[in-house]
Amino acid sequence: MKATQIPPITGTVTPADLLRMAALYLRRHGWHQGTYYALTTDTVTPPACAAGAIGIACAGHRVEHFSQLDGDALADYLTTLAVFVDYLDTHEPIFHIDEDGYLVDEHTSPYSWNDDPGRTANEVITALEAAADEWDRLHTTGGKNR
């Protein structure tokens, strides 16, 4: 291999990696509520909600809706978002009951959780990182995938 060649990447990017990338994105570019990205800025790296930051981590760029992701990035996004939802269900459950007393959704919505008026950027970043740590704890042994 020549010194100017880029060595091949042999590692697998895990949901934990993508959750950490999303947390890092929020630390660097800011957190947002209400939509995937802050609409008040015309930058390629706007403040994002948790789901928007996960989308950027998966795609490598801003996407307006997860349906715009290609096959591999979409699979990564849906898997990573599911890992985050599993974490929220266990550690910060929010369930919505309709007016008749029926459970509307059995899983915590990452969108509702992110958009809670009392939520802070630090809580979102901490939850993304904690979800990544939990995924690693459950799916790796000695730094390698199980």
Rank of each mutant, 00 (worst) to 15 (best):
A3T: 14
Q5G: 02
G11P: 06
T12N: 11
T14V: 00
P15G: 03
P15T: 08
P15C: 06
P15W: 00
D17T: 13
L18R: 15
R20T: 08
M21R: 13
A22M: 03
L24I: 10
R28C: 12
H32G: 06
A38N: 15
T40P: 09
D42V: 05
V44R: 15
T45G: 01
A48H: 08
C49V: 10
G52S: 07
I54S: 01
I54N: 01
A59N: 10
G60T: 06
H61S: 14
E64I: 01
H65V: 03
F66R: 08
Q68V: 08
D76E: 13
D76A: 14
D76S: 12
L78Q: 11
T79K: 08
A82L: 07
V83L: 03
V83N: 02
D86P: 00
L88M: 08
D89V: 02
P93Q: 08
I94Y: 04
F95D: 00
H96L: 12
D100V: 00
D100G: 01
G101T: 02
Y102M: 01
Y102F: 06
D105E: 10
E106F: 09
T108G: 04
S112I: 07
D116L: 11
P117M: 12
N122S: 10
E123Q: 15
A127T: 05
A132E: 01
D133V: 04
E134N: 05
L138Y: 00
H139T: 04
H139S: 11
G143A: 07
K144R: 14
K144L: 14
N145P: 05
